[in-house]
Design a protein around this nucleic acid. Structure first.
Length: 217
DNA sequence: CCCGAGATCCTA
DNA sequence: AGGATCTCGGGG
């Protein structure tokens, strides 16, 4: 449907240097892009969760646990951390910097380009059900374990500037009920009232984003 | 070495 | 409510 713009520029590494909670919010509205020989698919990030490894019992890298799976989180910010959850691949952005294993889980997208390709990959037609969950969006986008460790500043998998949300909601993270006190940390962020978020939840508070000079689309 | 659990999703 | 199906990590 939508024309693919001539130039979608990947964000550079310095974007990923900000603290993980800030990055989790800054990623909202950004465009996640995957190019394959089947074509290009892209969507705006509308929901994220922060995982602050060293102090976060819900994180795979809790207490600096370093294994084959978590290894990439100990490397530079702006790399891809993918892992398998039951039958699904989940996509994360590495953050926190070298030797500080943190990450941002991308939980939902608003489909923007390559929507027909996404529908084909998922075998469904309903756009609102295409990318409203972390396992659904990787399948729609064609993100797999092959992407583990790759840089988000270059094709085939990268993130570009999108739009600036008017309001961000904040709440508890999803699906980590057995993580002790960490389950209540308010580290889930989503674009207020966006209909592509993975599930509805009462937000603890909302953050209004002021539209300053740098934040036009 | 075996077994349980997990940042999920689909079907019944 | 339960199954798919793979990796990690703890316990014997």
């Amino acid at each position: 449907m939508g024309e693919i713009p001539k130039e979608i520029i990947p964000l550079s590494y310095d974007f990923y240097e900000q603290p993980t909670l800030e990055l989790s919010k800054a990623l909202l509205g950004c465009l996640l892009v995957k190019e394959t020989d089947q074509g290009m698919a892209a969507g705006y990030i509308v929901e994220t969760e922060a995982y602050i490894g060293p102090v976060d019992r819900a994180a795979h890298s809790y207490n600096n646990r370093r294994t084959g799976r978590t290894e990439v989180m100990f490397h530079r910010s702006g790399l891809t951390y993918t892992y398998l959850m039951h039958t699904h691949c989940l996509f994360n952005v590495v953050s926190g910097g070298e030797e500080n294993p943190e990450a941002v889980l991308v939980r939902a997208l608003e489909p923007r380009y390559g929507i027909e390709l996404m529908k084909r990959r998922r075998g469904i037609q309903d756009i609102t059900n295409l990318t409203n969950g972390p396992g659904k969006l990787t399948k729609s986008m064609g993100i797999t374990m092959e992407d583990y460790g790759s840089s988000l500043t270059l094709p085939p998998l990268y993130i570009a500037k999108g739009f600036c949300p008017e309001s961000i909601s904040v709440g508890k993270r999803i699906g980590i009920d057995k993580s002790g006190e960490a389950k209540d940390y308010p580290w889930r962020f989503w674009i207020t009232h966006n209909k592509f978020v993975s599930r509805h939840q009462k937000s603890e508070y909302e953050i209004k984003i002021k539209k300053d000079k740098n934040n036009e689309d």
